[in-house]
């Protein structure tokens, strides 16, 4: 199974060596001679073999472990989604079909189905959470970068929430959102906005928003750190040049600074989106396995289908969909890295 991979690995090394050889040929003005290049390849292949074999003990075991437990498990999950395994007992690996996926497609056409609702909420969470968190992170980063004192302290303060586990923050926020004693409503009442108090976690209108807000709280510090690094990589002269060029502060950030943060945005967005897909523990701790239609997301539904309803095949199907979504998030990023030769 790994043969092709190893061959590819070997090939890229070979081409690199050939190139360096032909470079040597070119330096004295000659054109690369195919015979010489062939010779170079032949002579380098024995070196390559021994290098390959010698390095095997170093990358072999981890590659095997990762291959088995990550990629192997992913493949197995896909396989299970093709069976009709449900209930207690073992799956039968005999009749593979796409019935799970056709059921999902049908469900997608029915706006009242769990799958439709969970998919809608997942996408909403993914998009809203990522966009809002990035914006807030950018804002915080710009403020902290304005030469605010105690920059390091602020950085730590804002980053700390991210180091907390979802379990902690879920419980913490369910207290914050408590309608009668929670800090949010208490604050609203104190500042005379009592009319805006809500049962944040019970009212289906606000439930998902409350979750997104809490997640944003947890991750905006991370986005800030990424942006701050990006901002600090921009030399001061850029800001000064923009100012002497006559740009206002807002225009300076919009036209000169923010466009230079594109790679920060991409890398932060990828991490945030993947976290959004994995928000399972947060919702599970806050609402249990049944968050209700306004807040149900695919990862919670996956757990419910697999471990509560024992619809293993359908649960695996949802897992596969989540995997593909994560891949969809990461792939463009990886492709860009690859294009830039950073991979």
């Amino acid at each position: 199974m790994f043969d092709a991979f190893f061959r590819a690995l070997g090939r890229s090394r070979e081409t690199r060596e050939t190139e360096s050889h032909s470079d040597d040929v070119r330096t004295d003005g000659g054109v690369a001679d195919p015979a010489m290049a062939g010779e170079a390849e032949a002579s380098s292949s024995s070196v390559l073999d021994s290098e390959f074999v010698q390095s095997l003990p170093f990358w072999g075991p981890p590659a095997l472990l990762v291959g088995l437990f990550v990629y192997g498990a992913v493949a197995w999950n896909v396989l299970i989604s093709l069976t009709d395994w449900s209930g207690l007992g073992q799956p039968e690996y005999e009749n593979f079909d796409l019935s799970v996926y056709s059921q999902m497609l049908n469900d997608l056409l029915d706006p009242t189905s769990n799958f439709f609702v969970a998919t809608r909420n997942t996408v909403a969470l993914l998009v809203a959470f990522t966009v809002i968190t990035l914006l807030l992170g950018l804002l915080l980063a710009i403020l902290v970068d304005q030469g605010v004192r105690f920059e390091n302290t602020f950085r730590t303060i804002y980053l700390l929430p991210m180091s907390l586990s979802f379990v902690v923050t879920a419980i913490f926020w369910s207290w914050m959102y408590n309608p009668s004693i929670g800090l949010i409503n208490e604050t609203l009442r104190t500042v005379g906005l009592g009319a805006f108090t809500q049962a944040w976690l019970s009212n289906p209108q606000f439930k998902l928003g409350a979750v997104i807000f809490a997640l944003m709280w947890q991750f905006s510090g991370y986005a800030m750190i990424v942006y701050l690094a990006g901002l600090q990589a921009i030399p001061n002269e850029q800001y000064e040049a923009a100012r002497t060029d006559g740009a206002s502060t807002f225009r300076m950030y919009r036209r000169v600074v923010v466009p230079q943060l594109r790679s920060s945005t991409t890398s932060a967005a990828v991490v945030l989106m993947v976290f959004a897909l994995k928000a399972f523990d947060f919702l599970f701790v806050m609402f249990g396995p049944n968050p209700g239609p306004s807040t149900d997301i695919l990862s919670v539904m996956m757990f419910r289908e697999a471990f509560m309803s024992t619809n293993w095949a359908y649960g695996s199907g949802i897992a596969t969909v989540l995997f593909l979504m994560a891949l969809g998030v990461i792939a463009p990023y990886l492709y860009r890295q690859y294009q830039r030769g950073e991979l």
Partner: peptide, 11 residues
């Protein structure tokens, strides 16, 4: 103003 580092906008 012309800066020592030129400060051209890279993007």
């Amino acid at each position: 103003m012309v800066f020592q580092s030129y400060a051209l906008y890279p993007h």
